[in-house]
Design a protein around this nucleic acid. Structure first.
Length: 111
DNA sequence: AAGGTGACCGGCC
DNA sequence: TGGCCGGCCACCT
């Protein structure tokens, strides 16, 4: 692990993820688009991986474009991610968010 | 220093 | 209708 926790790129991602309202979710691509790098959704995923140590980054509110909890395996390897979402009122069925378009939240664009 | 990888996305076959 | 492929860019070995 690297000790470069002050990487601006990651902070930019965290800044957006922290703004996700309670009970809402967004996608990696949407965050990437807000950062201006729409095609680099993968980097958002990497940032989330590093955000694992941070408690103020609600990574469970970030899913892929299908509303699928692809990052579930990174949460203790159990259904913790799903429980966190359900706890916020987000209905999850078979690792997939129900009414995804209703709970979807579009990140604000920086510049 | 170079190559491989990834919590993705969009398009093509 | 669904599966496969390339792109994209930072991080790790």
């Amino acid at each position: 692990m690297s000790n470069q926790e002050n990487s601006n790129f990651f902070e930019r991602v965290y800044e957006i993820v922290r703004q996700i309202p309670y009970g809402k979710v967004t996608s990696y691509g949407a965050i990437a688009k807000a950062l201006g790098t729409a095609k680099s959704a993968r980097m958002v995923g990497w940032a989330m991986n590093a955000s694992h140590n941070l408690e103020d980054v609600p990574a469970h509110r970030v899913v892929n474009r299908n509303g699928l909890l692809t990052g579930k395996m990174h949460f203790d390897g159990s259904n913790l991610m799903q429980q966190l979402l359900e706890n916020e009122g987000v209905e999850v069925k078979n690792n997939q968010i129900v009414n995804f378009d209703k709970v979807f939240w579009t990140p604000k664009v920086f510049h």
